[in-house]
Every structure is written in C-alpha cells, then in structure tokens.
C-alpha cells in the first residue's frame, strides 16, 4: 500500500501524543511498516503539539512533508489554521467541531473520539484499533475510550452520508 500520511495536532495536555501512539500501534498491528514522529519537550506546558504518523508498505522519512498529509486530525479549534498547510489537496480535515459539545461531554477522550472519526477513512481493521487502545491506555479508561471511539466513528459516518 502507498504510504498513508496522518498528522494529529492540538495543545499540550490534550492527548495528541497518546492519539498518535494509538494510531501508530494500530497500523503496526495491522502489519504495515510504520513511522511516527513528533517533538516532545516543551509540549507538556500547554504549547502547540503535533505528531506525524506514516504507514504503508515501506516508510522512509518519519515526518510528513508539508502539503502531503492525507488526514489531519486537530483536537483544538485554534490549532486548525496553523496546521492546515500540512494537508494535501483533497486531504481530509477532522476537527473538534465534528462532535457536538453538548452531547460529547468527555473532553479527556476527545483524542480517541477523533481517532474514531479518522478510522472511517484509514484502512486499519477494527480489532487492531481496539487492541491498540487497550495497549496504550490504563485499564480503567478502556470502556470510556471505546465508547468515545464509537461516538467519533458514528459522527464521521453520519457527516459523510449527509454530504
């Protein structure tokens, strides 16, 4: 498979790195070559954070070149514009506006909910997503995150069938 490029962005503390860990692990479990890269360091203190995940038959650079992301997942509305240049023409943006803030109360699992949305366009089997979530999250969080993943997935499917 041709390399799939995904960028996940947001602010420190939102779980951007956790989300990219889950995605990379899911792609890894699905048997792909995977590379994931981001800048750590100052991220825990609320600054902008983004993480690149690439998977396919053979991945070279671990960083998604600007303008080549197939999917851009953004966890925080203020971070959409600064990250938009990473998207390729025709690439898909998944932003926090996908979820109705009234209905989606669990902010802590927004990262996983948006992964659920992204899962509708990433060719990774559901069992690999679930296994990756379980491997990367504390056990007491499993149920809630599985629900959030399903919520995000349903929201994305609803939107794509509406348009």
């Amino acid at each position: 498979m041709k390399v799939k490029n995904v960028v996940i962005a947001g602010l420190g503390g939102q779980g951007v790195l956790k989300a990219s860990d889950i995605l990379a692990d899911a792609a890894f479990r699905a048997g792909f070559d995977v590379k994931k890269s981001e800048l750590h360091g100052m991220s825990q203190r609320g600054g902008s954070v983004s993480s690149d995940v690439r998977y396919g038959d053979a991945v070279l650079s671990p960083m998604v070149p600007p303008g080549e992301a197939d999917v851009l997942v953004v966890l925080e509305a203020t971070q959409v514009e600064i990250n938009r240049p990473t998207l390729r023409a025709g690439g898909v943006l998944i932003g926090p506006d996908l979820l109705d803030p009234e209905a989606f109360k669990n902010k802590k699992s927004l990262n996983v909910a948006l992964l659920g949305a992204a899962s509708t366009i990433l060719e990774i089997p559901e069992e690999d997503w679930l296994a990756a979530m379980r491997a990367n999250l504390a056990e007491k969080l499993h149920k809630l995150n599985e629900q959030s993943f399903a919520t995000g997935r349903a929201a994305a499917l609803a939107r794509s069938s509406a348009t």
Binding site: L11, G12, Q44, R45, G47, P66, N83
Partner: peptide, 13 residues
Amino acid sequence: EPAPPKGKPPELC
C-alpha cells in the same frame, strides 16, 4: 523558505 506556522508557545502551568 516559507515561515513555519507560529504555534502557541508553552507557558508555566
């Protein structure tokens, strides 16, 4: 080169 996008800088918690 195009200027890299200016993100939100980190701050003391």
